[in-house]
Simulated assay, not measured.
Amino acid sequence: MTNFIVAAVYSYPHEITILKHLLTEAGISFYFENETITGLAPFYSHALGGIKLKVHPNDLETVKEILSNFEDQSNLKIV
């Protein structure tokens, strides 16, 4: 996972819940950096640089498409 790159950054844990499902369903290897600490202390999110969605570089285009489709088809906007 050392080769993974940042695909997106979020401020709050609730913003990534649906994305976890969508990425898992698509078979994408991913992880959210700082997810645990922001779940315990949400105000640390900004100090840590947010919750970073990290993916393998080979999956980046697919992930961008998933994120774009999610934002276009949903009333939930991810900041």
Rank of each mutant, 00 (worst) to 15 (best):
L60A: 03
P57L: 00
K64L: 10
E71D: 14
D59P: 10
S45D: 01
F4V: 04
G27P: 01
E35W: 09
H14E: 15
L19E: 14
Y44E: 15
N69R: 15
E25S: 12
H14W: 05
F70L: 07
L19G: 12
I78A: 02
E33S: 09
H46N: 13
D72A: 10
Y10N: 07
Y31S: 06
L40R: 15
K54W: 03
F30V: 00
I5N: 06
N75Y: 08
F32A: 03
F70P: 11
G39M: 04
K20C: 03
S74D: 08
K52M: 02
I66E: 06
S11E: 13
E35L: 02
V9N: 04
G49C: 10
G49R: 12
P57H: 11
S11A: 14
I18R: 04
I18F: 05
L19A: 04
T38W: 01
G39D: 08
I16V: 05
F32Y: 13
H56A: 09
K52F: 05
Q73D: 13
A7H: 02
F70M: 02
G39H: 09
V9Q: 06
G27F: 02
I37G: 01
N69D: 15
Y44R: 08
F32E: 00
I5K: 03
Y10Q: 09
V63Q: 02
F32Q: 02
S45P: 03
I78Y: 08
K54F: 09
K54G: 12
A26S: 15
T38Y: 05
E25H: 10
T24P: 01
V79N: 05
L53R: 09
T24F: 00
I28K: 00
E33T: 13
V63M: 04
Y31Q: 05
F4R: 09
T38A: 02
H14G: 11
L53C: 12
I5Q: 12
G27T: 07
I37W: 08
P42D: 12
L19C: 06
T62S: 07
T38S: 14
G49T: 14
D59E: 07
P42Y: 08
H21R: 11
L40W: 11
S68T: 15
K64N: 13
V79P: 02
H21P: 00
K52T: 05
E33L: 07
H56V: 04
I78E: 01
Y31K: 05
M1K: 01
G49F: 13
Q73E: 10
Y12R: 14
N3A: 07
F43A: 14
K77E: 14
I51A: 04
S11F: 10
G27Y: 02
I28C: 00
V9P: 04
L22E: 07
E15R: 12
N58W: 12
S45N: 08
L60R: 03
V79E: 11
L23D: 10
S45K: 03
Q73W: 13
H21G: 04
I16G: 07
I18E: 12
V9L: 06
Y10E: 00
I18A: 14
K20G: 01
E71H: 10
G27I: 00
Q73N: 09
L76T: 13
H46D: 13
I5T: 08
